[in-house]
């Protein structure tokens, strides 16, 4: 592929995925300026290693993974994933104040719950794809997604508002 074609493809990629990348970054670090910097760094790294991308269809997942690694490297300073066995030990943090909006509730979720939810709801990825991106098992992702939704529903609807089902 010529440099011109690569440049054009890169520009299309930035325009197609920049917004999703920013939102993912924002929900990882909860800081709009840091989020933009993360996205900039992730795209810079993606450009340097774009020859490694074998499947164009997997571009979005590839970019998200780069961004996640950038976040781990520069902001979290540690791996943001944890061993699968720990999933069953996780506790949802203390409930936010009554009346807290959904954005606050999402922010209060542990990253291990929030991240697969972001990837599924924002990114449109399947549990299998998310598992590959997070380097964990599909079962662990399913558990995290279930618990994330249960936690959000319980807090958002509140005990008095829960619908009978």
């Amino acid at each position: 592929m010529s440099t011109g074609q690569s440049e054009q493809e890169f520009e299309q990629t930035v325009r197609a995925y920049g917004a999703d990348m920013y939102r993912y970054a924002y929900w990882l670090c909860r800081d709009r300026f840091a989020a933009e910097e993360l996205v900039q760094e992730a795209f810079a790294r993606a450009w340097k290693s774009h020859s490694e991308l074998r499947e164009p269809a997997a571009r979005k997942a590839w970019l998200m993974t780069i961004l996640r690694n950038e976040h781990a490297r520069g902001f979290a300073r540690k791996r943001v994933d944890i061993a699968d066995m720990d999933v069953y030990e996780l506790e949802v943090p203390d409930a936010p104040p009554v009346g807290a909006d959904l954005e606050q509730l999402l922010g209060a979720l542990p990253l291990t719950y929030r991240e697969p939810l972001l990837l599924q709801v924002l990114g449109g990825f399947s549990c299998g794809e998310i598992a590959a991106m997070l380097g964990t098992t599909e079962g662990a992702v399913m558990t995290r997604l279930t618990r994330a939704r249960q936690a959000l529903r319980a807090e958002h609807t509140g005990p008095g508002k829960r619908k009978a089902s």
Binding site: V39, L117, L122
Partner: peptide, 19 residues
């Protein structure tokens, strides 16, 4: 509702700054 809450506003001109 979760999707709407996650879809935070993207800064204007982000793509241009990246490019």
């Amino acid at each position: 509702r979760i999707g709407a809450a996650l879809a935070v506003r993207v800064p204007e001109g982000l793509s241009e700054r990246i490019l």
